[in-house]
Design a protein around this nucleic acid. Structure first.
Lengths: 336, 336
DNA sequence: AAATGATGAGAAAACGTTTTCTCACGTTGA
DNA sequence: TCAACGTGAGAAAACGTTTTCTCATCATTT
């Protein structure tokens, strides 16, 4: 009405084939009764003129937009991009596209984005954050579409996906044990983070009596500081350090090198996150726990699809397993 | 037809108000002739029942989906996320949402995503990559919608946006000069990158005769190596180093510290990228060139909007200015 | 008092699909 | 020869909007 599309519509195909639009539709969708020559002829003509059905029209009809919204509060993209990649990968086969909205902790902005997505009739919304113990600054309860939470707190009765922190900690300790380490400490982030606590608890359980956990910040600086605390002390120094993230691990490795302590010969280090930009560039490269973010994204995508298509999904917190990526900082990468 | 929407439509509002749908539409859009009491009454009823127009239906009518596609080949998100944030910020006010598609260098996948976006009638596509001298593995010429390229090579006659590398280099040298540095070298990435070459050329021009440019890789390791080359040499050592990215800068700073060379007292360092995860965590924190990615994203968003709405835009390569972010690695942060 | 004009509101068409319903035609069987 | 049936294809409605057109109704002017 306002503008005229230059795109080829089903009417153009019908005209070119000398049949009605209904016949074209049935021919292309392999539905209805029809002489098979007619069907083939129409298909070939449609291909010739480059017809592609207008998804908007179908959406209107089916009340399904084949679109989901990804709401993220993780400005930096550390989590969002791998997650996004997994979601997209899982959904592209189903013809579903993803709206990405960065809300930058702004409730107003979040509301605007959510409204825009609802207006565009998204089939579902995936909400992601940085922490499982913080919720987004917008209420997603009672929306007319399903919602899946990933790495952020969900409302009661919702589906929440996260990495299994305890599993990650166990993998790390297991590895350190395997390379013969016996005096292992855990240097991690603040105990105000649920994931830091869960990893710490699993660490304590795996290590047993005398387990040492040092809470600090998620920074390289804290890695340095922790090494200073451990080595300047009178007590015997550890031979294995499990770090709460790769930045801390980087700090620890650097601090040890400065002290002339060799990694991995004297001390084995395991990081957490497999943030390649850190893990790969640290010398030696970090053996680290990977949270399988892409797989988590894939799961989130498939889950939202299940919900959108009316299949029931078990509510509650679902923790997905981690995996260990072996590089050099832990040692034993050849002999095991 | 297939499923029945539980959402409230304009018909529901019409019924509730005891008027026709046309009247409701006109009332809500402030068009048509109508008693102002009627208009207000309808507006209030619409608000009461929570009516929000179905964007799909409008899109179908206007042949405008208020949606753009962002095609990215930058898996890691270093460029994509800030860009995305800027695009989104610029477009959200216009009611435009963004489809994000990560194509991971796969031509097949790219084609699938582009087709999906076209089917969904995007108003335009923004294509982004990592390098201005490489094109995406998919041909975006001749599409029925406008395309804007950012940080990737465009087809002839297209609109291409990128950061002004030469400007960035000039800002860096200017700063180093201002803090009194006279013997400045440039340690950067491979000369197979156009942006490395452009920065190097601008660097040479700014520094004048005797300018030293060292090409290597974009890694911390090269930063270390370059310092070794410079300091192990017989020649006098530089008092200022402009690095091609923050990772190299990080390597340089660390290597200098290991040699007992003080930064910024003895040598001033300027990085490039303002990748906060590096720039902020380096000790001392890096003074570095910021490519204004968010602003670039904003420009890309507004440009695609102009194109989508039929306003003409000058084709060709458009270089946006950089800015210098001052931290501690260059010195002079107080006295200037 | 009749013709003109202004005002308010509804009917219908349009956007591009899919699906249900209807119908004409030709074939088969009695 | 006629009824019953199967087959192929089109007409129309529907999805939720917006917009153009038409038409009452009522007030104003001659």
């Amino acid at each position: 009405m306002v503008a005229r599309s230059s795109r080829v519509t089903i009417h153009d195909v019908a005209r070119a084939a000398g049949v009605s639009v209904s016949t074209v539709s049935k021919a292309l969708n392999d539905t209805g009764r029809m002489a098979s020559e007619t069907r083939e002829k129409i298909k070939s003509i449609a291909a010739d003129v480059g017809f592609r059905p207008n998804a908007l029209a179908r959406s209107l009809l089916f009340n399904r937009s084949f679109t989901v919204g990804l709401l993220t509060n993780d400005t930096y993209g550390r989590f969002t991009l791998p997650l996004m990649s997994g979601i997209s990968e899982a959904l592209v086969d189903h013809g579903v596209s993803v709206f990405l909205c960065a809300i930058e902790d702004d409730p107003e902005l979040a509301k605007v984005h959510v409204d825009a997505m609802l207006d565009k009739q998204v089939d579902g919304i995936i909400a992601t954050g940085k922490r499982i113990d913080r919720s987004l600054p917008v209420d997603l309860a009672g929306l007319p579409v399903p919602v899946v939470y990933a790495f952020t707190e969900g409302v009661p009765g919702s589906v929440v996906l996260t990495a299994d922190d305890a599993d990650g900690a166990r993998l790390a300790v297991e590895r350190l044990r395997k390379v013969g380490r016996r005096k292992i400490v855990h240097v991690t982030g603040p105990d105000s983070f649920v994931s830091a606590v869960e990893r710490a608890d699993a660490f304590r359980q795996a290590v047993g009596a005398g387990a040492v956990v040092m809470h600090g910040t998620w920074t390289e600086g804290w890695g340095h500081e922790a090494v200073a605390l451990l080595w300047d002390d009178e007590k015997p120094t550890p031979d294995g350090i499990f770090c709460g993230n790769d930045q801390i691990a980087r700090g620890v490795v650097d601090a040890l090198r400065e002290r002339g302590v060799r990694v991995p010969e004297d001390v084995s280090i395991v990081g957490f996150d497999n943030w390649e930009i850190f893990a790969d560039q640290t010398r030696p490269a970090l053996t680290t726990v990977d949270m399988n973010l892409k797989e988590l994204g894939r799961t989130a995508g498939l889950t939202i699809l299940d919900l959108a298509e009316g299949r029931s999904v078990e509510a509650g917190l679902r923790k997905l397993p981690c995996k260990l990526v072996v590089r050099q900082s832990c040692g034993g990468d050849r002999e095991i």
